[in-house]
Amino acid sequence: MPEPRTTLGRRDSAGYRAFTIVNTVILIGVCLIMLYPFVTVIAQSFSSTGAIKAGLVSFWPVGFNIDTYVAVSGNGMFWRNYGNTVLYTVVGTAIAMALTTTYAYVLSKKHLRGRGVLIGIAVFTMFFNGGLVPNYVLISSLGMKNTMWAVILPGAISVFNLLIMKSFFENLPVELEEAAQIDGLSWFGIFTRIVLPLSKAVIATMVLFYSVAYWNDWFNAFLYLDKNELFPVTLFLRNLIAGASTTATESAAAGGADEISSNIQSVTMILTVIPILCIYPFVQKYFVSGVMLGSVKG
């Protein structure tokens, strides 16, 4: 059996092979540790309340039970709120990306007058916030309470994402923009026809960040929305968990309620994470490169 060789034709040393084996074993172990909680949650979502309370559930469901899935998916309001979440995520991510990319491109121009002030304003908001009551008064006075904009606009720009994208734009070759200006392109033309096509990696990363943030957000809806038909699915499920827990505590429902209350947290986590798991594989190849390109100068 031939000995393994490197790309340069040289034999790998015994130490290098040992390092590779140890490194592989460690990485497999880390992957198993990371997957264990998720697999356990899936198993608990299909398990009976007795098995969950007894701590018998690990990798496989014990006492197969789909009562919670039936209770949640059979609720018409659940699907309406699910649609609201999709709408809020799509519209919110589109607005956030439009604002973040344009603002970051402006901040990346070192010759811009007042650039330091604009960066300072953005960074200031990372450390200081108006507070819960002033924000509530502001949203209400702007007429956005009980509208989708109360959920979308407060998180339209993430300063963390803004700084990453600004750093990425600063690393783009200046010669490309100079050549485009000679050809007669305006700044807007340079931005849309040259800068954005070269920024697919960081844009995909920011889309993922914003999408996950909007998809998981329930607190803004909890504060600013009073109508059930406007709730996102995360708030619906949060209320469902609270309601099921209260019902179980007061023993006010039939025997099936205890089954639901015991594994409803696992079910809700599975239902809310599925769309993100479906999207992530398509942007995963851009994820690491986008973050690294936006954070390393040189």
Rank of each mutant, 00 (worst) to 15 (best):
Phe127Ala: 12
Ser141Tyr: 08
Leu118Cys: 05
Val133Pro: 09
Ile119Leu: 15
Leu132Ser: 11
Thr147His: 00
Asn135Lys: 13
Asn129His: 09
Phe124Arg: 10
Met144Phe: 15
Phe160Asn: 06
Gly131Leu: 05
Gly131Met: 03
Lys145Gln: 14
Ile152Met: 01
Ile139Phe: 02
Ser141Gln: 10
Ile157Gln: 09
Gly155Tyr: 06
Phe128Thr: 13
Ile152Asn: 00
Ser158Val: 02
Ile139Gln: 08
Pro154Asn: 08
Val133Tyr: 03
Ala150Pro: 07
Gly155Pro: 08
Gly155Ala: 07
Phe128Leu: 14
Met148Gly: 02
Leu142Arg: 05
Leu118Tyr: 11
Leu138Val: 07
Gly120Ile: 08
Val151Gly: 05
Gly143Asp: 14
Thr147Phe: 00
Gly155His: 05
Ser140Leu: 12
Ile119Arg: 07
Leu138Phe: 14
Leu153Cys: 00
Gly120Met: 09
Ile139Asn: 08
Ile121Glu: 09
Phe160Ile: 06
Ile157Asp: 06
Val133Thr: 12
Leu118Asn: 03
Ile121Tyr: 01
Gly143Val: 12
Pro134Trp: 04
Pro154Met: 03
Leu142Lys: 01
Val133Cys: 05
Pro154Lys: 07
Ile121Cys: 07
Gly155Trp: 06
Thr147Gln: 02
Thr147Glu: 03
Pro134Tyr: 02
Gly131Ser: 03
Ile121His: 00
Gly120Ala: 11
Ser141Asn: 12
Gly120Glu: 13
Ala156Asn: 04
Tyr136Gly: 13
Met126Thr: 12
Trp149Asn: 00
Leu138Trp: 11
Ile139His: 04
Leu118Trp: 10
Gly155Phe: 03
Pro154Gln: 08
Lys145Ser: 15
Leu153Asn: 00
Asn129Tyr: 03
Phe127His: 08
Trp149Ala: 00
Gly143Thr: 13
Gly120Trp: 09
Thr125Asn: 13
Gly120Pro: 11
Asn146Thr: 04
Leu138Glu: 10
Asn129Glu: 14
Leu132Lys: 08
Lys145Glu: 15
Met148Gln: 01
Gly130Thr: 13
Leu118Asp: 09
Pro154Ile: 04
Met126Leu: 15
Asn146Gly: 06
Phe124Met: 13
Gly120Cys: 12
Val133Ser: 05
Ile121Leu: 14
Ala150Gly: 12
Ile119Asp: 13
Ala122Tyr: 04
Leu153His: 01
Ile152Ser: 02
Ser158Asp: 10
Val159Asp: 04
